[in-house]
Design a protein around this nucleic acid. Structure first.
Lengths: 222, 222
DNA sequence: TTAATTAATATTGTATACCATCATACAATA
DNA sequence: TATTGTATGATGGTATACAATATTAATTAA
């Protein structure tokens, strides 16, 4: 990265980020009411800021607002979760395929670097770091495949299942399955084998979906 | 409808709708600055409301905000437009396929009814009505296919190319091509022929995409 | 005249106070 | 027990204030 284009970070941005994380980390239960004044105190900002944040989250469908009642943390049913993984599969397969067709050496070495980072982070049980690097790896793939719109959608969908993902990593984090599948994707890209890349990507997501659904079941039955 | 379950419409909602329409109808040029004060006057609401609306549009990617400068109407490049149609194709094909597999008589008669409405509206050159009915028809398809998440995304993507769509209808509105393709989709659904439905859907979108790109070119060269 | 600086003005970001309306929990009553 | 008030609190919305930053106009230098 040569220059960091934008960065006067505004209070609203940081507050929004904090709220997003709090929801993803499960600090608010699905269905829980978000009371403006409480959030003001907790984040130390004014109601103005909180309200704008909530509008943003609302439009991201991370919270659901009922007029005159207020916002609550959105919850997903199993059908929606399955659909999210299904759509992610379409989008990611499309990106991975295109990336396999176009990737140059620079992209490939970048992917391998991130893979190293991820393995390392997982060895040290640093889940957050692994997640962050995985995201960077995928962004590289989408960039190389020239799928900027798809990337936005994937990020959005991931946001909606953020709670699940955090949970999944907490319980399945040190599993070696995930990285293996990732490696398969990278290998296929390296060899410009579009079909193999697509298949590896499908496998990867199928597994992720299964773990997520498992997670949901254990949550619901508990 | 026995009871109107709809929530009380809030000022913010109506203002948001107006802004969305204004953008879609091209009343604001891409890249144009949206000044809060001006919008307040124009819509007759307070700054708070306007700001909340802008946050919403921002998250919908209809406007781009630079801190301390303000929001501007987002613009799309050709690559992104192509990608949007590509993604819409994936999502709609998925929905149409699933709908063809599951549709019962009620759904089918509903689809046929909407088709009638659309033909009628087009005959009378009532573009807005045709658009609105087309949307309802698609919503019926997505509902029957149980693709609520995909529907949200399609709506979002359509919002981002709203300007183009309005333009397209204005110039190609009375073309009989569009409805014909729609009819093919409905026929395939009626016969529960998933493959034919998928193919008809692909054709439909391919054509829409071509018209849109043509539109973009004439805009850029002009 | 044109370029560069500086002063003036707008606009955004944020905070705060205020009010009307609606929702909910609780108490009083029938 | 069921109903009706009533108190309380939250939200939707408005208005105002002010610092920080952008933009524009005005002024000065080249």
């Amino acid at each position: 990265m040569l220059t960091n284009l934008k960065r006067p970070k505004t209070l609203k941005e940081t507050a929004l980020k904090q709220l997003r994380e709090a929801i993803a980390l499960g600090h608010f239960a699905p269905g829980e009411r978000l009371v403006e004044r409480v959030l003001c105190e907790k984040l130390g900002v004014s109601r103005t800021v909180i309200r704008e944040c909530i509008r943003h989250l609302e439009s991201d469908q991370l919270v659901t607002t009922v007029p005159n009642v207020g916002p609550t943390v959105a919850s997903l049913d199993v059908t929606q979760i399955e659909e999210i993984y299904e759509i992610r599969t379409m989008l990611e397969v499309s990106a991975v395929t295109s990336c396999a067709a176009n990737a140059d050496d620079e992209v490939i070495s970048k992917l391998e670097m991130y893979y190293e980072h991820i393995s390392h982070a997982l060895e040290e049980d640093n889940i957050q770091q692994a997640l962050s690097d995985t995201r960077k790896l995928y962004k590289t793939i989408f960039d190389a495949g020239e799928k900027s719109v798809a990337w936005d959608l994937v990020e959005q969908l991931n946001g909606r299942i953020g709670q699940l993902r955090a949970l999944t990593l907490r319980t399945h984090g040190r599993s070696v399955e995930g990285p293996k599948k990732l490696l398969a994707i990278i290998e296929a890209i390296k060899q410009h084998d579009e079909d193999a890349a697509a298949q590896a990507c499908k496998d990867h997501l199928k597994q992720a979906k299964e773990i997520a659904l498992q997670q949901v079941n254990s949550l619901n039955s508990q």
